[in-house]
Nucleic acid binder design. Structure first.
Lengths: 205, 205
DNA sequence: TTTCTTTTTGACCAAACGGTCAAGACCACG
DNA sequence: CGTGGTCTTGACCGTTTGGTCAAAAAGAAA
């Protein structure tokens, strides 16, 4: 029975695959795909390299597994945007959820950023299908709110981009933000207040 | 005479160092430091590997040269923010200049993004000195405008972060933006309009 | 216990990598 | 032309890297 091809069956397989993916997330998000080595991941996971390769057939397979698991949960906040809710509050809540993800899952954010900055060689396809479909759908909802005069007139796609840019910035550029603000301040708490008022001013009709 | 230590003297040295730095910018910005190989840079520059290493002593030296050249020009738009000018127009002009840099120098933006996302291992020091000093200085200017009621009350540091995030997003996440918008649209022209109105709404008292 | 499967590992390999070196090609200048 | 410095290169080296393999260790089930 090959632990690398079939779904994990034993408790040891489940535990070790989880350990490996967590270690790989740590290493990949910090050094990028090519900057990370199998040895680094194995060390971080507390396993020997051959043992790690018993659970995943290759370094690339680990990376792909991480990315596809990520894409799934990464878009949940946008999926939750409710066409029936109050427009301004829905959009603000979306921005707030995205900012929470920057705070709670900065490694995931940086893994994604690394992939996109380098041209999305491994997930490019799903961007123009899966992601585009979802964004287009929600953009239509926002455009409807605009047309009905319930929020100001804004390009819905760029509104969504601005939420991504502003929230992910606090995870992806964390070092820079902290270097500039100095040690006494709390970037993500401040960002919550700032972004809330920014999007409120932008959206109020 | 060592072409690697002294300032370039001959025309050939000047030309080849320029060619190499341009090729290295292309490769580093696409693959990151560890993802780039000396052979890739040499190929892109049309030189043999030993010949390239005749002009720069190491791969790291090329990278450092690029980054320090970049830091210099990267902050020019912010330096140009004039305390004596019209507050809203000054800030809008800054955002516009930054967006132009995303359009005209996307490789530089991605080189920087790669460095920061991975924890700024090579320029971390100058972030908390050079960069922080400049930002703090300009933040004081903006705070003055706020206090005088000439723009709305905003946290000046986070205002600057928001300009960075929103403008660099269009260079760093270019693939994603284009994948979502589809082929018929012009992201950077649209962004200009969108950001202009966003910051206008945010800043008007 | 015995037997069978799953898990772990030390030793190893081929390719890729950053970098060196000695020697040849080229070029400016007298 | 010749001569001295600049530029270029093929061959090479030690290390790192992703990955393999046979065999040993550890579990599971009877």
């Amino acid at each position: 029975m090959d632990a690398r091809t079939d779904k994990p069956r034993t408790r040891i397989q489940i535990r070790n695959r989880e350990t490996i993916l967590d270690a790989a997330l740590e290493v990949f998000s910090q050094y990028g795909f090519r900057g990370a080595t199998v040895d680094m991941i194995a060390d971080a996971a507390g396993l020997s390299k051959p043992n790690l390769l018993y659970y995943f057939p290759s370094k690339e397979e680990i990376h792909v597994t991480l990315l596809s698991q990520l894409m799934d949960t990464w878009l949940d906040p946008l999926r939750a945007l409710d066409a029936e809710g109050d427009p301004v509050e829905e959009i603000l809540a979306y921005a707030r959820r995205k900012l929470e993800m920057s705070r709670d899952f900065p490694r995931e954010s940086r893994l994604f950023a690394n992939e996109i900055v380098q041209g999305a060689p491994r997930i490019g396809a799903s961007l123009s299908t899966e992601l585009k479909a979802l964004v287009d759908d929600k953009a239509r909802v926002i455009a409807g709110w605009s047309a009905a005069g319930r929020i100001a007139e804004v390009d819905p796609h760029h509104l969504i981009f601005s939420i991504w840019a502003l929230t992910q910035h606090y995870a992806d550029f964390d070092v820079q933000v902290r270097a500039v603000l100095g040690p006494a301040r709390d970037p993500l708490r401040e960002a919550e207040v700032f972004l809330d008022s920014l999007f409120r001013r932008l959206l109020l009709p």
